[in-house]
Design a protein around this nucleic acid. Structure first.
Length: 500
RNA sequence: GGCUUCCUAGCUCAAUGGUAGAGCAGUUGACUCUUAAUCAAUUGGUUCGGGGUUCGAGUCCCCGGGGAGCCA
């Protein structure tokens, strides 16, 4: 049958191709076969009634991940979306010929469907005793090592499917991401938020300060940029009378790649009319606690439900259940510099102060940029427990309302968890004249970057509103205890490999 | 973009500048309740690519490719 010349016996690809060729020569082509699956693996196991062996029939399918042949009986495991299930093949059940096919033509990695009945083994594992099986896809390439899995980072990212097959942690983490996104949708829909979709191709990259990707539309003869933020189009929805809207979508920023940055990343933005930044505080806290309690469901050492998740980078346990700290930006700066009069200091004094903290700044920077260097380099990374930083300097964001009793700050918060910015939120600026002034000041020489169409929309009247953005990737880093954004993105951006 | 570091069999990893090895996987055989099954035998290498130093390079040096970490 499988007459494999010894000179290819070392080449697993060649051996598998030979097995496929033999099968086809024998009249069976796995790539033309299929199976009518009745259950996923765990659902099938749940059907088993204790003491009632061989009474429940199931048809399950999946990838062969364990292969243990011992003469006339064999145990194998297949893996599907729900996990693994053990199968028991016996010569006296299947007959000499089919059992021979099972032993000779199947390999680890093949995808098979089997029909049989459930029983429990001596060691207590619910197993399918196979009465018939079909190969429905031949794996021509071998799986990575069964015990250590795949650990080469490059292969994990470039061939994520292999990582998902052999690394249970990755499978679990990336499935958890799906569940988190789904739960965010349901949470918002339950509160009457409408999900909308706004343009990715935009004429002006608004809503944030970042370098966009450029592209071109041939038929329109127009240059476009890929969006860097969802903000300005969602606010137009508020003008249009959609009072509670959100979008979960991809943003693109043409900047560095790091453990916390991927050029394309997923943002959630939420806008709620007649709310403000304080309303967003309640919303995000409720959302995050819901995600921890009902989706991530962490347990402590004793196996009891907890609201704490271990922060991979610091090893500290982040407690989502405890009261979240709220602190003003300026107080954090005064605390970090040990200078109660920091904001009254001259620029030269500020530069000296920043350098005393071991940071270097460009003397051409504005005062607020110098101060903000302390925030982003010293303060932010140290805020591991959930912290609302409020009343940021107005220069940091042109889209928020000025604080009524302090014209130098804005009514916003920045939620920091695990040393990362997770969610900024504002009381949204809805005064078209103030907004125009802020935009023009920010654009400076580049007035063409002002989104005039958005300002026109504001002139039609936007209700007062609270708005918030949440970086979904970073949220997933936190909630899954991942170390890098690449661990929560299925296909993180890598260099394309050049052919020799 | 800069600095540091890594790239060895399908996978996970070894190898003072001196004959490239192991485990898993593969191949052949034994084995009808295994759990990283076990037992016996056995195949498998352009050491990322190119150049250099050396009697001799996986190892040292240079150029290039890719990954990771830190920085910008």
């Amino acid at each position: 049958m499988s007459d494999i010349p010894t000179d290819i016996s070392h080449d697993q690809h060649a051996v598998r191709r030979q097995k496929l060729a033999d099968m086809r020569a024998g009249g069976f082509d796995p790539f033309r076969a299929n199976v009518n699956v009745t259950h996923f693996s765990q659902d099938a196991k749940a059907l088993y009634v204790d003491g009632q062996d061989y009474t429940t029939a199931v048809t399950v399918a999946g990838r062969l991940v364990t292969f243990r042949v011992q003469g006339g009986s064999s145990f194998v495991k297949i893996q599907d979306q729900q996990g693994q299930i053990q199968l028991y093949f016996r010569r006296d059940v299947l007959g000499e010929e089919r059992y021979g096919v099972f032993k000779k033509s199947l390999d680890l990695g093949d995808i098979i469907g089997v029909s049989g009945s459930l029983f429990k083994t001596k060691t207590g594992e619910i197993t399918v005793r196979v009465e018939s099986f079909t190969l429905v896809s031949k794996a021509l390439r071998p799986l990575p090592e069964k015990w250590h899995g795949l650990s080469d980072a490059e292969q994990v990212y470039r061939q994520r499917y292999l990582d998902l097959i052999v690394n249970a942690e990755s499978r679990h983490r990336l499935m958890l991401r799906s569940k988190i996104v789904s739960a965010v949708r349901r949470f918002l829909e339950d509160r009457e938020f409408l999900e909308v979709e706004t343009p990715v191709l935009q004429g002006v990259a608004g809503g944030a300060a970042a370098r966009p990707f450029q592209t071109h539309h041939n038929a329109l003869g127009t240059d476009f940029v890929l969006r860097i933020s969802l903000e300005l189009y969602l606010k137009r929805m508020l003008v249009g009378g959609f009072d509670r809207v959100f979008e979960i979508g991809r943003n693109f920023r043409n900047e560095g790649v790091s453990r916390r940055h991927n050029p394309e990343f997923t943002m959630l933005e939420v806008y709620q009319a007649y709310s403000d930044y304080r309303g967003m505080m309640t919303l995000v806290q409720d959302l995050m606690r819901h995600l921890v309690r009902d989706v991530v469901k962490p347990v402590d050492e004793a196996g009891q439900p907890t609201m704490k998740i271990k922060h991979a980078a610091s090893g500290e346990a982040i407690d989502f259940g405890a009261e979240w700290r709220e602190v003003k930006y300026k107080d954090l700066i005064r605390e970090a510099t040990g200078d109660p009069q920091w904001f009254e200091r001259s620029k030269a004094e500020k530069i000296a102060g920043v350098e005393k903290l071991g940071l270097s700044v460009n003397p051409a920077w504005e005062d607020f940029e110098i101060t903000n260097e302390i925030f982003s380099k010293k303060i932010e990374p140290s805020l591991i427990q959930p912290t609302f930083v409020t009343h940021l300097p107005k220069e940091l964001c042109p889209l928020a309302k000025i604080t009524p009793d302090d014209p130098t700050t804005i009514d916003v918060f920045e939620l920091i968890i695990g040393g990362m910015e997770i969610a900024p939120a504002y009381s949204e600026q809805n005064d078209p004249d103030v907004q125009r002034e802020m935009f023009e000041k920010q654009a400076g020489e580049e007035q063409q970057k002002v989104d005039q169409d958005f300002l026109l929309a504001l002139e039609h009247g936007m209700p007062p509103a609270g708005g918030m953005g949440i970086g979904i990737d970073r949220l997933c880093i936190l909630l899954t205890g991942a170390e890098s954004i690449r661990d929560v993105i299925l296909y993180p951006q890598l260099r394309t490999k050049k052919e020799e």
